[in-house]
């Protein structure tokens, strides 16, 4: 009992200490740019519920969802194709190596030039940033599938869709998940950048508008929202990952215990 208590104490201790310190250190703050934590929290509900949630937060989330899903789907599809085909891999590998080295945000101005600043562009911006980690990790995962399992599939004549679904994708899933996680954080970043560079609504847009309009407590609260979004999505991802890779963690643990 006391051990559980001390554990929770340790887990919650530092965040509480930090928040309390911030609260009191900023309490009497006269600095325009560093408003008291109290003020930030006070403006939070008015700023982010109601109309603004519908006009700015919601559209951002939808775009993020669509863009991220497309990036993952596209990355897995291309990754399986490239990973499973030795010649194709040799053909595109140096090219991919170059393309992925391009920082995705620099493509945003070009995309805006080509496709304007509508929703498709903003989704595309997310796809272009998120697809690389998924693609490259899928290629690695598919390339590294176990030969004995591959032989097993061949000798039992497991082919086509069944093979893809029960063998290739599952065998590559630990790598794909690594890619998908990286893609998630890049997607959030790309979502914000897309909105900073050209948008009329959205989470990133609103935060920058606050900054430009010197609504500093509101701006701080916006940063909170973005941070919270990152944390919540990462949490959700961990839950999904636990389900998808349950077998993987189990097998690894069995291996380590010297089975």
């Amino acid at each position: 009992m006391t051990r559980v208590l001390s554990r929770t104490g340790l887990l919650l201790g530092l965040p509480v200490v930090l928040l309390v310190t911030w609260w009191f250190a900023s309490a009497g703050s006269k600095s325009f740019y560093q408003p008291p934590l109290e003020t930030i929290i006070k403006v939070f509900p008015d700023t982010w519920t109601g109309a603004r949630f519908k006009s700015d937060v919601f559209p951002s989330l939808i775009r993020l969802f669509i863009g991220y899903s497309l990036a993952v789907l596209l990355g897995i599809t291309l990754g399986v194709l490239i990973g499973a085909n030795r010649r194709l891999r040799a053909l595109v590998e140096p090219l991919l190596e170059f393309l992925r080295a391009i920082p995705p945000p620099v493509l945003v101005p070009i995309l805006i030039l080509i496709a304007g600043i509508g929703n498709p562009t903003k989704v595309l911006v997310i796809v272009i940033g998120g697809v690389w980690p998924v693609l490259l990790n899928t290629v690695e995962g598919v390339r590294g599938v176990d030969e004995v399992l591959s032989d097993t599939c061949r000798s039992y004549r497991i082919g086509g869709w069944l093979r893809l679904r029960t063998f290739i994708l599952r065998a590559a899933s630990p790598q794909i998940v690594v890619g998908a996680r990286q893609a998630l954080s890049i997607s959030i970043i790309m979502m914000v950048i897309g909105e900073l560079l050209g948008a009329t609504n959205g989470l990133g847009y609103t935060v920058v508008e606050f900054q430009r309009g010197f609504q500093i407590p509101e701006m701080w609260s916006g940063v909170f929202v973005l941070g919270l979004l990152g944390v919540l999505l990462s949490l959700a991802f961990t839950l999904v990952e636990r389900r998808v890779l349950n077998w993987y963690h189990g097998a690894r643990a069995a291996e380590r215990s010297g089975h």
Binding site: D146, E147, V148, L149, D151, T152, S155, Y156, R157, T166, F167, R170, A171, S173, W247, Y248, A251
Partner: peptide, 17 residues
């Protein structure tokens, strides 16, 4: 058709998932 192989590497011939 109608042929099955049992491999030496049991740890790698079963699908862990």
């Amino acid at each position: 058709d109608g042929l099955a192989i049992v491999f030496q590497e049991y740890g790698r011939s079963l699908f862990p998932w």
